[in-house]
Design a protein around this nucleic acid. Structure first.
Length: 859
RNA sequence: GGAUGUUUAGCUCAGCUGGGAGAGCAUCGCCUUUACACGGCGGAGGUCAGAGGUUCGAGCCCUCUAACAUCCACCA
């Protein structure tokens, strides 16, 4: 027998381990249709946060649902080495121990990084288990494992051979703290306070006159190669071709004209620094200008900068400003706020620097995706609008910088011959190790993540798993990584497997703090999913996440709702207790009663169950978990607990009813509720399920409820009883009667409800109930299908007030109805069923009005 | 500058193809009743942001406006 209290701690303990050990999480039953979800691999940077919990909960709900629906479900786990993010953490850890990575060298450093990875993935495993995920651990993967090395190499090689990977000298954004290049999307623009510095660039032939040039980054002046003005700018027509003196280094630079310059911005004259600004670089190329690199990748100044060389960029700026000011070449300083690029990982201000990097040529790959999205084989997004986020980004995409000056990751498989331009793409040294050396850089971590859905299944080998589970069925992720990850998986998959990587993409929002702010470590407003589980239970957290997350919309974290999820589960727990307490030990659990032989009330709840199964299944198939849950919720609460269970107390205590019918119904309905709540709350479902008579070893071996088409029954008599009880209860409250006050009840109806009288009796506390075809004295309430007459001790005035209230309500209905029915357009154009329905209602309202008015007269 | 989303009860939010406004929490009244006080019964509380339009009918579709949020692109 179940405990009186729903104790989630006791229930959740050990269940996952048990399921896993019994092999319920294993995929591979080839007698069934395959269904696969590959987990988005969490970074091995630390512990899982509430966002992961959301992701994983959704996936697990889908997997458990599909498994119950008869699929061979593969839910494949894995973790991501997360190049720069992890390296930042490991660097910081070593730094705290007083170690610099360059001291210990690459090999030793990687040992440290792997140690870190093993530790973190251990924690992640424990968290997955706490979240109740049905992961098939026998197939776990890691983005740096051997198979991935093969996949990454093959992809690099093929793209290189096809000319889609190239090495080029371009302006890339550098993270001076991590000392590595970044791709465009790894830059986060933030509004920062800064300054606009105006300098005098004096004319060589007339040192008393000058051009006023503004910049936000004075330190880049060492890289100036010219001044650019717009050829149509009247102010500068005469100075084009002249030379000015760069106040930073006294070099003479020419003034040239190009339409790129905006006449209305700043002074209309712009300094051009080709090696340190993407737009300047383009101009530099156009006019074949020099492109001196004046800053190192660590943010210090190069030898180009004379006495400033070696200084940090910001130190250099301060010193340079003072020096220029002392020459009287500083005009003014304006305070401005502008968008400044920061590194997503280190938060350092990024620096555009010209350098040689490896790139993926994006146009052809992106084009293929865009074309494919126009076909019926496209990747389907839920909600659909996120497809536009993808396609807009792909339609206007720059080449992807894939080389990173890091150690943690896939080393670029390129070997250079010393003293020559020759290079070879190879896993191992192509010749004498004295002559060849490997590229020092590693690949962007997303380069390997992009292969995740197929490389995890064994690609490039044609493994049985790859053949069976690819393309995967569904990807669940947040909208924040559509660019980083989703898009890249799609183009790599189309290019290398000629298939989309997943059929459906389910996009959910981000979990925000109660004020709507993004959760982050620095703000300290994050919530730890494990702490929530410890307080409210995993089932409560899962149910909360599933019901709160409307597709694609952000979730504001709301602890109250987790508590109410817990209360709901407690309700189910107690309804189960009631069922189990009332089923006698000798009841044969194999009893199967034909629908037509059931008590009326039992038929009613089966009809409701059937409707609920249809609604819930429909919503589940569209990943609409909130809708599925709210339908189930109203069935559990309104139909089952509040109504059916209460009524069943009569069925079980009154000889007039078939008790076996009720036993059978109680058990069956409960079981169906468990099966539907199970994907959301697997622990409590399992616990209760195992208390049911005739259960299997686990609820995981059960099938999902199906709609039973043979169930057909007119429930109007039951609804009449329901309304009768509700109306009497309300009557008592409104007339200051105690709930259990005895009344004499007369019911005038043409319905045959003889067999349902005991139910009415018990819940209205009527001392007598009489079915009548005549009018009776006393207070009266008109309901759908009849009139209730109540004889009690309530005064005339109070009765009159009650009646007037009823009359008011009916008059309102009549008004609305007449308005509709007097409208010829409604009659002509509306759905005929609707019209008929309305006419029927109107007739009923008129009848009710007549009756109430008569009552009032009689009083 | 471009795009998207949000605006519904005091608070947090649902509302699927247009057909009498819903939940949780909070609140008010009654109730210890053998599943549950993590409860039951009943009530109060809404110009569905605003303005137009389409429609017999709009929270839902269209247009505009406002506020908030997010993403993309950003000029020295």
């Amino acid at each position: 027998m179940l405990d009186k209290r729903y104790d989630f701690k006791k229930i959740e303990e050990g269940k996952v381990a048990n399921w896993r050990e019994k092999g319920y999480f294993l995929a591979g039953d080839t007698s069934k249709k395959p269904f696969s979800i590959i987990i988005p691999p969490p970074n091995v940077t630390g512990i899982l946060h509430i966002g992961h919990a959301t992701d994983n909960t959704f996936q697990d709900i889908i997997c458990r649902y599909k498994k119950a629906k008869g699929f061979d479900v593969l839910y494949l786990p894995g973790v991501d080495h997360a190049g720069i993010a992890t390296q930042a953490k490991v660097d910081a850890k070593l730094k705290a121990e007083g170690i610099d990575r360059f001291q210990i060298g690459r090999e030793k450093y990687l040992e440290e990084a792997f140690k870190w990875k093993n530790e973190k993935s251990g924690i992640i495993h424990a968290q997955w288990e706490k979240l109740g995920l049905m992961l098939d651990y026998t197939r776990e993967r890691f983005t740096l494992d051997e198979g991935f090395q093969d996949a990454v190499f093959l992809v690099f090689k093929r793209l290189y051979d096809e000319g889609l990977i190239y090495r080029g000298e371009r302006i890339v954004n550098y993270d001076p703290e991590m000392k590595t290049a970044l791709s465009n999307i790894e830059i986060v623009y933030k509004e920062d306070k800064g300054h606009f510095y105006y300098f005098k660039y004096r004319f060589v032939d007339d040192k008393n006159n000058y051009l006023s040039i503004a910049t936000t980054r004075p330190e880049t002046m060492f890289g100036d190669t010219c001044i650019v003005v717009n050829p149509n700018d009247e102010r500068y027509k005469d100075v084009i071709g002249k030379k000015v003196i760069n106040p930073a280094n006294n070099e003479e630079i020419p003034i040239i004209a190009d339409e790129y310059v905006d006449i209305n911005f700043g002074t209309g004259a712009m300094k051009c620094t080709p090696a340190h600004d993407p737009n300047d670089f383009i101009i530099g190329k156009k006019y074949n200008l020099a492109h001196p690199v004046i800053m190192n990748t660590d943010g210090t100044m190069t030898a180009e900068c004379g006495k400033y060389s070696g200084l940090d960029r910001f130190e250099c700026r301060e010193k340079l400003l003072k020096d220029i000011e002392s020459h009287d070449d500083l005009i003014k300083i304006e305070e401005i706020t502008h968008q400044v690029g920061h590194s997503e990982r280190s938060d350092a201000v990024v620096e555009p620097i010209l350098s040689k990097q490896w790139f993926v040529k994006m146009k052809p790959l992106a084009e293929r995706v865009l074309e494919n999205q126009k076909t019926e084989h496209k990747v389907k997004f839920y909600p659909e609008r996120f497809e536009n986020v993808l396609t807009r980004w792909l339609s206007d995409i720059d080449d992807w910088c894939i080389s990173r000056q890091l150690w943690w990751g896939h080393r670029i498989p390129v070997w250079y011959k010393k003293g020559s331009e020759e290079l070879v793409v190879s896993k191992t040294c192509p010749g004498n190790t004295d002559e060849w050396y490997q590229d020092e850089d590693v690949l962007d971590t997303w380069f390997s993540s992009a292969l995740w859905p197929f490389a995890t299944l064994g690609w490039p080998k044609e493994t049985p798993d790859f053949k069976r589970y690819f393309p995967t069925s569904c990807l669940v992720t947040g909208y924040d990584i559509i660019f980083f990850w989703v898009s890249r998986m799609i183009f790599q998959s189309l290019h290398f497997t000629n298939q989309i990587p997943f059929n459906d993409v389910v996009i959910h929002g981000l979990v925000r703090d109660p004020k709507g702010k993004k959760m982050s470590k620095s703000a300290g407003n994050g919530v730890d999913p494990i702490a929530i589980i410890d307080q409210y239970g995993c089932d409560s957290l899962r149910y909360y996440l599933a019901t709160t997350a409307a597709p694609g919309l952000d979730i504001k974290y709301n602890e109250e709702k987790i508590a109410s999820s817990n209360a709901y589960l407690n309700k189910i727990w107690n309804s189960a207790r009631y069922v189990l307490m009332n089923i006698p030990n000798d009841f044969d659990a194999n009893t199967k009663i034909d629908f037509n032989d059931l008590n009326e009330l039992d038929k009613f709840i089966f009809v409701r169950l059937n409707e609920t199964i249809a609604k819930v299944t429909g919503a589940m198939d569209k990943y609409e978990f909130g809708i599925a849950c709210s339908n189930l919720y109203s069935f559990v609460y309104d139909d089952f607990c509040d109504f059916y269970l209460e009524m069943s107390k009569v069925s079980l205590s009154n000889e007039a009813y078939n008790k076996n019918s009720t036993y059978y119904t109680l058990i069956t309905i409960l079981k169906n509720i468990l099966l539907m709540i199970y994907p959301f709350a697997p622990f409590i479902s399992e616990e209760i399920y195992l208390s049911l008579p005739n259960h299997k070893d686990s609820i995981m071996l059960e099938s999902y409820p199906e709609v039973d088409k043979s169930v057909s029954f007119d429930i109007s008599n039951i609804l009449f009883v329901k309304e009768t009880i509700e109306k009497i209860r309300a009557y008592k409250v409104n007339n200051e009667l105690k709930p259990n006050e005895k009344i004499k009840l007369f019911i005038k109806t043409s319905k045959n409800i003889d067999s349902l009288i005991p139910y009415i009796q018990r819940f209205t506390f009527a001392s007598s109930i009489t079915l009548t075809s005549e009018e009776v004295s006393g207070s009266s309430i008109i309901i759908d299908g009849g009139i209730l007459y109540i004889q009690d001790d309530v005064s005339k005035e109070e009765k009159l007030a009650t009646l007037n209230k009823q009359l008011e309500s009916v008059l309102k209905d009549i008004d609305r109805s007449e308005h509709l029915l007097n409208n010829p357009n409604f009659l002509n154009k509306a759905n005929p069923d609707k019209v008929k329905e309305e006419q029927e209602k109107y007739r009923k309202y008129l009848e009710q009005r007549k009756l109430i008015e008569e009552k009032i007269k009689n009083i």
